[in-house]
Structure formats: structure tokens, C-alpha cells
């Protein structure tokens, strides 16, 4: 009788543990949003970097250690986006199950389309990512590729919930496909429109929606605008009749605004990540929606 009770107790505990949502930590909020799309209530997702924060520069605070210590899955953007802050956190997390090479570590750059892979790279070129541009999630097709990878990994970690994750992935694909048709239709009149961006964060977004990024406020990635570069940029924008400067919410608006004034254009804030604004960027769909609305408003 004792053995039966013990066995039943063990099964009950195991069932309870398995029924608890999988603890997922993501480095940025977009990955958290896409994980919620696929995982639903079977995952408990937390993002480290806020959407209104530059994901290159996150302070590796000890409070993040506790998040990582308890995580069952860590999802990263990869391509060295998090190299300045994630490695020391991982080293101190006391969680060997989320280290690179384990099932608990998912680098989503492995299954997406990567742009801007430099053939030659050195630091005289600025803060260039040697393995390619890490802002790939801003292409909705890559959002699907991210969701597929998340679904595959969640199914590996929770085989019993695999059909649930597969169903949610299919639902997500249908919804984002419909949204994408709408987004492309809305952006169609502006296909080929020339814009300047602050940082090179938008190649995937621009490619998907047919924008033509002709210059950057930063003279080189990570280098603040200099007077000579600003002068050249103004000259180029005037010659090519470029009126829109798109920038992230965490950069200083002073230089972009003065450039926009000089060319009779305007600055538009685009959100490179979900959660980038207090409202209108709650999830991936809203973020792209808001960005497209803002862009169209500026390009009209």
C-alpha cells in the first residue's frame, strides 16, 4: 500500500510540475511577444531588455541573475547583439541548462534571413556586427521563422503540449499573413520611398516593405553624428529630396531634428521592439502596425 501511495504521489508531483507553465526568458520583448503567440498560457515569459531601451547596452544587473537562474528556456537574438551583457549574466546564473549548446538555449538567428553580413570587418568601420545585422525580427517573414523555431523548441521541451504549440503556430501564421497583406497594401504607394535612419536597425524592415534607406544619421554604427557627416547628409538629402528621418526612441532627437529642419523634412519615431512605447506596441502586431502608421503619416 505504501508503495502505491508513493508512486501516486510521485506521479501527482510530476504531473503538477509538468502542468506548470514553462519558464522562458528572452533578451528582447519581441521574442517574448512571439513566444506568447506560440506558447499561450503554457509558457511564462519574461524579457530582460525593455522595448524602449537600446538592446546593445543593457546593464547586467544581479536582479537578472534570478530570472536566468529559474529559466527553463533562454531565447536570444544572437549575432552578438547581447555580447556586451549576456555572457557575464549567464556565467553567474548557476543554471547550466540554459547555456549555449543545451536545449534550454535558443539562438533565433540560426533560422532567419540575415542581411548585411560584412565580407571584411574591423573596428575602424564602427560597431559593426561581424556576423550580420541583428535587427532581423523587424521583417514579418522572419517573425514567422522565429515563431517556427520557438514552436519546435517548445515541443521538444514539452512533448505533451506539442499539438497545442503547433495549433497556435498555425493560428499565428494565418493572423500575421492577413496582417502582412494589409501592411503591404498600405505601404504599396510608398514603395521605393527614400528615407534616412539614425542607426542601421531597419534593413530587414525596409527590404520587406520596399523602403530605400539612403543614409544614416550616425556616420558609422555606434558613432554619434559629427558636424562634417551631418553637413554631407543634409547635402545628400537635399539632392535626393529625402524628407523623412526614422529613428529609435532611445536616441537623442537633437541632431535628427536639426537635419530635418535643414531639409524641410521631419523626424519619425519608429519602434524597433515591442514595448517601445507606452501604448500601441504591446505586441509584435501592434508594433509593426504603429510603425507603418507613423511612416505613412510622414511619407504622405
Amino acid at each position: 500500500m505504501k508503495h502505491i501511495t508513493l508512486a501516486l504521489l510521485t506521479i501527482a508531483i510530476a504531473a503538477t510540475l509538468n502542468a506548470a507553465p514553462l519558464k522562458v526568458v528572452t533578451t528582447i520583448q519581441d521574442l517574448a511577444s512571439l513566444t506568447k503567440e506560440v506558447g499561450g498560457d503554457r509558457v511564462d515569459v519574461t524579457a530582460i531588455a525593455r522595448g524602449y531601451q537600446d538592446p546593445h547596452f543593457v546593464e547586467p544587473k544581479p536582479s537578472f541573475l534570478l530570472l536566468l537562474r529559474n529559466a527553463q528556456l533562454l531565447e536570444v537574438v544572437g549575432l552578438e547583439l547581447e555580447i556586451g551583457w549576456l555572457p557575464p549574466l549567464l556565467d553567474q546564473s548557476r543554471n547550466a541548462n540554459i547555456r549555449p549548446g543545451t536545449n534550454g538555449y535558443l539562438d533565433l538567428s540560426h533560422g532567419v534571413e540575415i542581411l548585411d553580413r560584412p565580407a571584411v570587418v574591423n573596428r575602424s568601420m564602427g560597431d559593426v556586427h561581424p556576423m550580420g545585422n541583428p535587427h532581423y525580427w523587424l521583417d514579418p517573414a522572419n517573425a514567422v521563422r522565429i515563431a517556427i523555431q520557438i514552436q519546435q523548441r517548445l515541443a521538444e521541451l514539452r512533448p505533451a503540449d506539442a499539438p497545442f504549440f503547433a495549433q497556435r503556430l498555425n493560428d499565428f501564421k494565418l493572423r500575421i499573413n492577413e496582417a502582412n497583406k494589409r501592411w503591404l497594401a498600405e505601404m504599396a504607394p510608398y514603395k521605393g520611398a527614400k528615407v534616412v535612419t539614425y542607426h542601421n536597425s531597419w534593413p530587414n524592415f525596409a527590404r520587406h516593405f520596399g523602403l530605400n534607406v539612403v543614409g544614416y544619421v550616425e556616420p558609422k554604427p555606434g558613432v554619434p553624428p559629427s558636424p562634417s557627416h551631418t553637413f554631407e547628409l543634409i547635402k545628400m538629402m537635399k539632392e535626393q529630396h529625402v524628407k523623412v528621418i526614422a529613428m529609435e526612441p532611445y536616441f537623442d532627437t537633437k541632431a535628427p531634428k536639426s537635419i530635418a529642419n535643414a531639409v524641410g523634412g521631419q523626424v519619425v519615431i519608429l519602434y524597433p521592439s515591442a514595448g517601445g512605447a507606452k501604448s500601441g506596441t504591446d505586441d509584435y502586431f501592434q508594433t509593426i502596425d504603429t510603425n507603418i502608421r507613423s511612416l505613412i503619416g510622414a511619407l504622405k
Binding site: V112, E113, V144, I148, N180, R207, H208
Partner: peptide, 22 residues
């Protein structure tokens, strides 16, 4: 080691999108 990056179709069907092998 660079997977080819095809240009996106104008009306890409996202339900058909697959991951890119690394």
C-alpha cells in the same frame, strides 16, 4: 556558409515561410 537571401515577393504568403537552414 552564407545562405542565399532571395528578394521578398511583393505579396509574400507568410503561411508558407520556412526557417532558413544555417
Amino acid at each position: 556558409g552564407t545562405p542565399p537571401v532571395p528578394p521578398p515577393a511583393a505579396t509574400e504568403d507568410l503561411t508558407k515561410v520556412e526557417t532558413v537552414p544555417s
